[in-house]
Design a protein around this nucleic acid. Sequence first.
DNA 1: ATTTATAATCGTAATATTGCAATATAAAGA
DNA 2: TCTTTATATTGCAATATTACGATTATAAAT
Lengths: 107, 107
Amino acid sequence: MGTTKAQIFSERQNELAIAFKVLGHPARVAILEYVSRQNACICNDLVEEIGLAQATISQHLKELKSIGLLNGEVEGKRMCYDINLEKWTKLQKELNTFFNTTKSNCC
Amino acid sequence: MGTTKAQIFSERQNELAIAFKVLGHPARVAILEYVSRQNACICNDLVEEIGLAQATISQHLKELKSIGLLNGEVEGKRMCYDINLEKWTKLQKELNTFFNTTKSNCC
DNA sequence: ATTTATAATCGTAATATTGCAATATAAAGA
DNA sequence: TCTTTATATTGCAATATTACGATTATAAAT
């Protein structure tokens, strides 16, 4: 297999899991942190900063874009990435809702 | 490959990513939610509730235990799972720190 | 026009993950 | 003891992910 049985879960559970999954790689954590540290745009600085091949960074950026956490704007021959603050804040709220709702006891 | 290059990231980044990764599967989201909904213990109810094979559920439980989010106590022939509230709260704080610290601008 | 810089995409190898059947283990009850 | 119940573990097949070199596409600079 290797395939998640998404059909048996709710849309909300799947979406939550996908967001967690995208955040679940240190390169993507590092990318988000670096993008946010630079008040200006970064582009291929990430390749130097992080130390993964350009193709690999590009792939990770794609995943972060896929759930809307990063915006990418063309700026001449460069790509200018920044954090989508609206989505970022929304996701943070959703995660907190999950954590708060799930806080409960057992046994 | 398929192997994450963990060496090139900080311990904090790796740990954060691992936590996100463990949460990044709908079955594990569902398990946490179900465990918390039951004020009492659950055990193999999860297999019925979620609809994955017993071996699969057991594997997911193992991963949740591995980062300390779930406690498992033997209770006769049963296993009694509950959420480790201390760890749960700690993780929530860490994730919020990550989200808040990373909130910033670009371009 | 040609070269250079930047970044996406393709193809591929190595490894990881998901899921399950089968088996093992261990306690409870007959 | 023998059977049942509950859970963990093992082994395996299918698929996904990570990473990279090579290629491609585009715009800027010469």
